[in-house]
Simulated scan of single mutants.
Amino acid sequence: MFTALDAPTERLDKHEQNFVEKIRNHGWFGTHVMPDSEGPGFIYTTGFWLKFGFPEVILFSMRQQTAQDTFWTIYRELEAGRRPPIGEPTDAVFQNVAAVFLPVSLRQYPNYLGWSRWFYGNDEFECLHLVYPDRDGHFPWAAEASAEARAAQPDLTDGNWQGLRKVS
């Protein structure tokens, strides 16, 4: 698989060189996007797909350091040969709550995964949205979830949380 790691250094600007070096040195890089008027902040990985054949991961509305620590936890699990389940709750990521990995729709890639798309040179990589429950234990697709909790983690699946929430 050809990636930006294979590009001649002189063809990359200093930001691209830094990005590539982080992946070369650590196996992955986390891109942090600040919240704005269009939506909540988020952070996503680049490098999991190349190193482990495991989808990149995107996480919303979490402090940058906490998200980075979460990604390192996932990285270490993958390095140990343990892959979290997709589409069902798992306690392999967070200590106090379950989380669910859901496939990110390709139509969401341009809006959220710019650096990963640049790194791979296309959209031929997978990405998972790591979703966590609100303080009351409700995932965003649950009827009991607050509007605030839903706004904090937008649905990046093919719609309606990939069938997790019943249509009213």
Rank of each mutant, 00 (worst) to 15 (best):
P140D: 00
W141I: 09
T31M: 14
E88W: 00
G137V: 01
L102H: 08
D158M: 08
S116Q: 07
V104Q: 01
P103M: 13
H129Q: 14
D136N: 14
G81M: 02
I23W: 04
F29G: 12
A142Q: 15
F125G: 06
L113M: 13
I86W: 06
R150K: 08
L102V: 12
Q153E: 10
A98P: 04
N18V: 04
A92D: 07
L59M: 11
V33C: 14
C127M: 11
V104E: 04
Y112F: 07
D155V: 00
E88N: 08
V93S: 08
L102A: 07
A142L: 05
A143Y: 11
V93A: 09
Y112M: 08
L113I: 02
P103A: 04
G53N: 11
E56Q: 05
A152N: 06
W28A: 09
D158Q: 08
M34E: 03
T45G: 00
H138E: 10
L128G: 06
D134R: 02
Y44D: 08
A147M: 14
G159I: 12
L128M: 02
R107P: 00
H26Q: 09
Y75F: 15
R117W: 05
F19K: 03
E148L: 10
G27V: 06
W72H: 14
L106P: 11
M34R: 01
L130H: 04
D158I: 14
G47M: 05
R63N: 12
G53Y: 10
P40V: 03
E77S: 13
V57Q: 00
D123K: 12
T73P: 01
I23E: 03
H32C: 09
R150I: 04
M34W: 03
S37Y: 11
E21P: 03
A142F: 05
H129D: 11
D134H: 09
T66M: 00
A99N: 03
A92C: 02
P55A: 10
V100S: 02
N122Y: 07
N122R: 13
F48N: 07
D134E: 04
L78V: 08
L128N: 11
R63I: 04
T31I: 07
T46I: 10
G53R: 07
S37L: 11
W72P: 01
